[in-house]
């Protein structure tokens, strides 16, 4: 029994141990190699970290829900870009311009609605056709990106509204809006997954869909809701980011889906569904962002970041496999 507890702790806590390791390593390495005497572990740095982690972090939270549910969504990067474009472009529509500052919440609403709609499309197709979510959202990734380019060609979509920028850069306790939105999303979805019926059913369906059907769960609508949720979160991520930057490049958000999945998997969520946690994903997101920041801090070339993260991802999953002893009953290949 105590062994079980220890194992659970090890599995759940592994990512936080890794983060601690990163902090110590970069702090020490920074002092040894870095010419500047700046500390790595310092409040401003950590607050900045949260802000930088926000765009992918918000998406990763949604991805966690979808993956626990036994699905995946590869279209989030394109959804992110399209929602950003809709938001900025809508600000220059004549009736919106007439509204002045009142147009801002409306523009946010349009962006979120875009995300919800795209998620709805994904969810409906997965539910009604029974085609694997990987394929459906792979198609959606290409399709939604196509919409992005159709909107404005290769040109960036641009609209700078200083009120919007002010809101985006507002601070509470030193945290800027994107970081606050990220933390709020983490808290909200954590409650959703741990305390509500919807969360409970998400785990059950991801773990054993047949048993869930037999228990009378409405699996199709449930899956649909989760796709809408991740669509909205991808759009929310765009709202948080583009309100400050004011410009969407048609290539924005590419590879976001893969970064989000990486963070989710690092955080201990199973690719096959049924197991995972929002807090783990928060750890995964922070671990990746720390690595990016830290490698910069010690003066490593930015090109090394991807290599290091890729290596760590595989190492972590190998460790997870060993800890779970899944391999024992499997055939050797």
């Amino acid at each position: 029994m105590r062994d079980e507890r220890l194992k659970t702790l090890l599995k759940g806590g592994a990512i936080w141990g890794f983060i601690l390791l990163e902090l110590v390593f970069f702090e020490v390495a920074g002092r040894i190699w870095s010419l500047s005497g700046n500390a790595f572990v310092d409040l401003d740095n950590m607050l900045l970290l949260l802000k930088q982690a926000a765009p992918i972090g918000i998406i990763a939270v949604g991805m966690t829900v979808v993956m626990i549910n036994g699905n995946i969504d590869l279209s989030v990067g394109a959804t992110y870009a399209l929602a950003g474009i809709v938001m900025l472009d809508s600000m220059s529509w004549p009736f919106m311009e007439a509204l002045g500052a009142g147009a801002i919440p409306l523009a946010w609403g349009f962006a979120l609605l875009t995300g919800a709609l795209l998620g709805l499309i994904n969810g409906l197709i997965v539910w009604k056709t029974g085609v694997d979510a990987f394929i459906v959202t792979l198609g959606a990734m290409l399709g939604f990106r196509g919409l992005v380019f159709m909107y404005n060609g290769e040109q960036p979509t641009y609209h700078l509204d200083w009120t919007m920028v002010d809101i985006a850069e507002a601070e509470i306790l030193g945290l800027q809006t994107p970081a606050l939105v990220f933390l709020a999303v983490v808290l909200g979805v954590w409650l959703l997954m741990t305390r509500t019926v919807h969360g409970r059913n998400a785990y059950a369906i991801g773990d054993n869909r047949d048993a869930a059907v037999n228990a009378g769960l409405r699996v199709g609508p449930h899956i649909l809701i989760n796709f809408v949720l991740i669509g909205v979160l991808a759009a929310l991520s765009a709202v948080a980011f583009y309100s400050g930057s004011g410009s969407v490049n048609p290539n924005d958000g590419m590879l976001f889906e893969l970064w989000a999945i990486t963070a989710v998997v690092l955080g201990g969520t199973k690719l096959t569904g049924g197991r995972g946690s929002i807090i783990g994903t928060l750890g995964g997101v922070l671990a990746i962002q720390l690595l990016r920041m830290g490698l910069g801090h010690i003066g490593a070339q930015t090109e090394t970041v991807n290599l290091v993260i890729g290596t760590i991802l595989i190492a972590v999953l190998f460790l997870d496999r060993q800890l779970n002893r899944k391999g024992a009953e499997e055939l050797k290949i």
Binding site: Y203, N208, G274
Partner: peptide
């Protein structure tokens, strides 16, 4: 195991699932 239970879930949650 395939149709009746969510094996990763605890006893209580399996009983109350429906």
């Amino acid at each position: 195991k395939e149709q009746g239970l969510v094996l990763g879930m605890n006893c209580r949650d399996n009983i109350t699932l429906p």
